[in-house]
């Protein structure tokens, strides 16, 4: 009796000791704010006063009917995500193909292509602000190529493509690493057999390489989709959503709504919708990955 009780107590102490710290910090920083956010989404809290009034679905009605900012920022986010996902994966995959050839400088080149990835989006945005404004015009003056003399970051078009260029430059090296890992795992006998059969590069790409690296493709696609959907830092330092909110992603709309306009309730409602979309994307990813595993 004594012994079982002591054993039980010891189990409790162990549970508390091993799980306690994680559970405490996680609850305080993630779980409680998450639940509070769901509540605030249905209130008109302004962040300053203690008065929080329940307004039911008013915020959501506002978002879907009377609020152009959300629709616009959502449109921008979707356009940006599609463009960035396609280009980053194409460049990352291309780099991986190059670096799996038997070239001598491959280790140094891998370091260089990966380098932009270790610098945070905020500082990258500032670096490129200079490149777009001063660097491009210097190149344009020297060469006369019209592309460099566009009003970079000055209008909606160049702002959009500016953000895409920086994102591709930042993300391609990371995807390259994942694609290289996939390419290295392709059995060399398969490629040699294809060579003997006289297959050209496009045939090998279509019939051997791409089918065999589909797991890497899935990982890379969803990585870029969720990262592009959550883009913030690069845009903040590059265009700050301008000119005239034309390059404002959803994350920034939430940020401005809450911390500039002091409409915390409305911001929380947008944040909740944003969460649901990101969660849905991730859920689709898990389902697809699992189905692939069953097939193979």
């Amino acid at each position: 009796m004594m012994q079982t009780r002591r054993k039980k107590l010891s189990e409790w102490v162990q549970q508390l000791y091993f799980i306690g710290p994680s559970l405490f910090f996680f609850s305080l920083i993630v779980l409680i704010p998450f639940v509070m956010g769901m509540y605030y989404a249905f209130t008109n809290w302004n962040g300053v006063s203690n008065e929080v009034t329940w307004v039911g679905l008013d915020n959501f009605v506002t978002i879907f009917t009377g609020d152009e900012n959300f629709a616009n920022s959502f449109g921008f986010t979707v356009r940006f995500t599609i463009t960035a996902v396609v280009l980053t994966n194409a460049v990352g995959f291309g780099l991986a193909l190059l670096l799996t050839r038997s070239i001598r400088t491959k280790n140094a080149l891998r370091t260089i292509f990966f380098l932009p990835n270790v610098i945070g989006g905020l500082l990258l945005g500032f670096i490129w602000q200079f490149i777009f404004i001063k660097g491009f015009s210097a190149v344009g003056d020297a060469t006369g190529i019209g592309f460099f003399n566009l009003p970079w970051l000055g209008d909606a078009q160049t702002g959009f493509w500016g953000i895409v260029i920086v994102s591709v430059w930042q993300g391609a090296g990371y995807l390259m690493v994942i694609y290289i890992a996939g390419l290295i795992n392709i059995p060399s006998e398969l490629m040699e057999a294809a060579d003997i059969d006289g297959a050209n590069f496009v045939q090998k790409l279509k019939n051997i390489i791409i089918p065999l690296i589909m797991p890497a493709v899935t990982v890379c696609l969803f990585l870029t989709i969720s990262n592009s959907f959550k883009v913030f830092d690069v845009v903040y330092s590059l265009t700050r959503g301008g000119p005239y909110k034309s390059t404002e992603p959803v994350t920034m709309d939430i940020y401005f709504e809450a911390f500039t306009n002091n409409r915390m309730g409305l911001g929380a409602a947008k944040a909740l919708i944003f969460f649901l979309i990101v969660a849905a994307i991730t859920l689709i990813q898990v389902v697809i990955t699992k189905r692939k595993e069953v097939q193979s």
């Binding site: 998450f34 509070m36 956010g37 962040g47 959550k230 915390m264 944040a271 909740l272 990101v278």
Partner: peptide
């Protein structure tokens, strides 16, 4: 959970 959806609370 994306950071932006819990930063307000």
């Amino acid at each position: 959970i994306p950071f932006q959806s819990i930063m307000i609370p």
